[in-house]
Design a binder for these strands. Structure first.
Lengths: 252, 252
DNA sequence: GAGTGGTCTAGACCACTGA
DNA sequence: CAGTGGTCTAGACCACTCA
């Protein structure tokens, strides 16, 4: 037949739905505005709720939406740029950092971390910190410091001053370099709680090794909210522009 | 009653399932081994297939599994470390890079990219490249080069030599610095095809500005497979260790 | 064509929030 | 308490791969 099958490209419903919603967010909604609830939206588009949710999940992953149980779905602001390098932002004590120490224990490092540190299985200072930007928890971190890196550490440690004392000692070292990797992960139950997300929420895991005096002086595993953060690494300051991926079909 | 409710913590089934499977992968399976199909697994665990799939999706997101339609679910190898900085890896032509040029057109840059370049809406050279490691497509990139950055460019351009010619000219510039950001995204239909994934697959979007002669000489948006890649940034070489997130409950 | 993962439905109940 | 998103079920059909 001569029926030009213009739109029978077999695009999944949720995918099409996602693009429709994405466009609607740009043109008909303001940041912070709350969307109709999932049951209404599904009915409005004539799909099952599960299908609608598949589209919403993707949009949340891309940082366009924020959903909170018991509350509703709101339009998310553009992701914030969060500097993770160079040194100034993360090396404890240097610069105006936005990290808060929330706890510290001395314990054996988990296997992968021990490998990072190049130590055996001996106990290390394990400091949990969290990073707050614009009033929002954006990251939680575990910083591992071998006792050898802080030999002058006071022996009068209480749970309250343990973390700050280690950081203070660490800061007296001269930092020679660092090593970083970024990968996708999902929030553990504990991380999720600190980041005000549900367990399993997508996160960017930043693993850093700090070098001093030819050794690994410390290692950290920082977990950033992937929905709200854009990590910036810069010689020249942070990028200013928000990048919504738009299907620019070019250059084959 | 004295019934100590040891395991009534209201952990979702799929979450528990995920940890069970994760442990099983460590102890009972080899990399590359194929798992029982979803229907069998669901039956074995006494859950609906959708619930089982929720667990598998998470494990795939974390790079533990690889699923291919029509084939099956296999145990993924540890993520590969992919260097994205410093310069050597990405600045066209320098070092032993693993990028292939697959196309080039001259066209107006999309809005966000124009902002990155600090140019108006004029046409820029848009080069698509792809990065292959260990025989696998790990990234696809669009590199945007304003004509002003390559003034000596030959006027004898064919589709076949356009891209390489621009890269050659670009390489004659002295690179002064770069700017980078990393965020989570989902693969466009086009990117997905090049990365051998389904549309919507999670990707790490690396946006880079290259500076030369006090200007932005080029900008690129590179899309890495989030399931198989760990991006490394290093003064001191790549990290060697694979980091499976394990719920180390420490330091409150 | 048999078997796989991917999409979709129409329900149900639960956990959480805030008035 | 009513209303929200989160979890779960038991089906169905589709798109894809490969022998």
């Amino acid at each position: 037949m001569g029926t030009t099958q213009l739109e029978s490209v077999q695009e999944p419903k949720y995918w099409h739905l996602k693009t429709v919603l994405n466009d609607a967010l740009d043109s008909e909604f303001e940041v912070g505005e709350i969307l109709p609830n999932e049951r209404d939206l599904a009915a409005r588009f004539g799909v099952a709720r599960a299908t609608l949710r598949q589209a919403l999940e993707q949009l949340e992953l891309e940082g366009r939406l924020q959903r909170r149980r018991g509350v509703g779905t709101t339009v998310a602001p553009p992701r914030m740029g969060v500097a993770v390098g160079p040194v100034a932002e993360a090396w404890p004590g240097s610069g105006r950092d936005s990290w808060n120490t929330v706890g510290c224990v001395e314990a054996a490092a988990p296997g992968p971390v021990a490998a990072l540190l190049g130590t055996g299985g001996e106990a290390v200072h394990t400091i949990r910190r969290e990073r707050v930007m614009r009033g929002q928890h954006v990251a939680t971190e575990l910083l591992y410091v071998p006792p050898a890196s802080v030999p002058e550490l006071s022996t009068m440690l209480t749970p309250a001053n343990h973390g700050p004392a280690v950081l203070r000692e660490l800061h007296t070292l001269e930092l020679e370099g660092e090593d970083r990797s970024v990968e996708l992960g999902s929030a553990s139950a504990q991380d999720a709680k600190q980041l005000d997300r549900l367990p399993g929420a997508p996160v960017l895991v930043v693993t850093t090794r700090y070098f001093s005096e030819g050794r690994v002086a410390a290692a950290s595993v920082a977990t950033y909210r992937a929905d709200t953060c854009r990590l910036t690494f810069g010689d020249s300051g942070a990028l200013e522009v928000t990048h919504h991926q738009d299907d620019s079909r070019q250059a084959s």
